[in-house]
Design a protein around this nucleic acid. Structure first.
Lengths: 232, 232
DNA sequence: ATGAGCCGTCTTGTATACAGTTTGGTTGAC
DNA sequence: GTCAACCAAACTGTATACAAGACGGCTCAT
């Protein structure tokens, strides 16, 4: 039964993560070990290991002798996470301004071009992907592997919420413009400028998201996938 | 056999962490599950869970079907981690400049006073402790719980190396002066100033450490009590 | 003699069995 | 009727048993 390169528990951890993100397991839901074991046709052992992984990454709360519960970050924590993301990315941009290679600059621009295509086609999914690539490229060009890993970690953690927020009308074009401003600053080697532009570029996502949250609450709209409030 | 509030695996994880930090398990050493199980008089199960925790926190490398190995960060990675720490703390200081409470400022100064006492008594251990408190206070006053957690996490990770570096002659007094500069900037609400002072205060630790590493290598000194990385 | 292929052992990964705690229901007393 | 205490079922944490890779030594062929 064992024939793979990756451990069973790793796959299960990713799967459960997906189930949390797509809403199968709602906030506060209890994740029963035996149920999950049956669902994945394995014993409790790999499931337990997977749950511990998720607990350490902060996706679930593990209360001793009580079980593990889905723990979606509340509005306050989300704002906080976006603030940290903005600062991390600002640091990446600042460092990248002096360390980025010409080749990477070219890749940045080509990624941006694909972003523009996506905007024209109004293809949110493609834009979303290219956007992640754009940011990941800058993490890489910061020339600090540890910083890169941390940035990728947080980017991954915030992924579902960023996706939600990207649907705001008019946001795509604005985001594109900010990307280009970042590239310009990087080209000029303007460290402080790159940091500032990047910080506000990411921070605005958090604010937009905050706004969206407020609308959802007062408006009583259930699902985030549908409605797209207009820009303020 | 079950009578505690904390899980066996948590205690074991902390214990193993300690054994790594105090040099019992050197860099690259293999951590055998059964040996550890015997050492702690438990079965393999809690040991495995502990090892996975350590693997996720980056202290050990877990190679599938091969085992787990102590993974002390090399010089390059350490520099990178200190750079990130410096940036994180700079952000904390910048945010704290506008958010810090008068009460916290008072606590900061009293902590600093205790630092001064420790310097007078040349009590490195006490200084080390008060120093950590000083920084933790600023994380807290950044008013961002997530940022605070991340800063504490990295502070903890770098603890053994900071301790090593603190022994450099004359560093204590210099560090004290920098602390006071930070407090001044915070008092004035000078966000940019606080960030700059804090960044260089932490960054210089990394540089000092780098220097120390060089001495250790050329000097051929064996172990400094903090796990000396061997291969790059 | 040396190198490559095979087998045995050791170790990890998974399954199952067991122990102890928590929780919810039920029953009894006030 | 309500509240509390006790009992039982369920679930988590731990131990043990089993399966399947990986590594080392051995053998055999060139």
């Amino acid at each position: 039964m064992l024939f793979m390169d990756r451990k069973r528990s790793d796959i299960i951890a990713d799967d459960i993560e997906g189930l949390i993100f797509d809403g199968t397991f709602a906030d506060g839901a209890r994740l029963d070990e035996v149920q999950l074991a049956e669902r994945f046709s394995v014993s409790r052992t790999p499931v337990r290991e997977a749950l511990q992984r998720l607990a350490l990454s902060g996706l679930v709360d593990q209360i001793p002798r009580r079980g593990v519960f889905v723990r979606q970050p509340g509005p306050v924590e989300l704002i906080e996470m976006f603030e940290v993301m903005a600062e991390l990315e600002a640091v990446c941009a600042r460092l990248a301004a002096s360390r980025i290679s010409d080749d990477a600059l070219a890749r940045l621009e080509s990624t941006n071009a694909r972003c523009a295509e996506a905007v024209s086609a109004n293809d949110t999914d493609s834009y979303y992907h290219q956007n992640e690539l754009f940011h990941a490229l800058i993490y890489e060009q910061a020339g600090n592997g540890f910083l890169q890993q941390e940035a990728l970690r947080l980017q991954r953690r915030l992924r579902p919420f960023r996706r939600m927020q990207l649907r705001a009308r008019g946001r795509l074009k604005q985001s594109m413009a900010e990307h280009q401003a970042v590239v310009h600053a990087l080209k000029d080697g303007d460290a402080a400028g790159a940091a500032d532009v990047m910080r506000s570029h990411v921070a605005v996502q958090g604010e937009k998201f905050h706004h969206l949250l407020g609308l959802l609450k007062t408006g009583g709209r259930g699902n985030a996938g549908g409605g797209a409030p207009s820009t303020p």
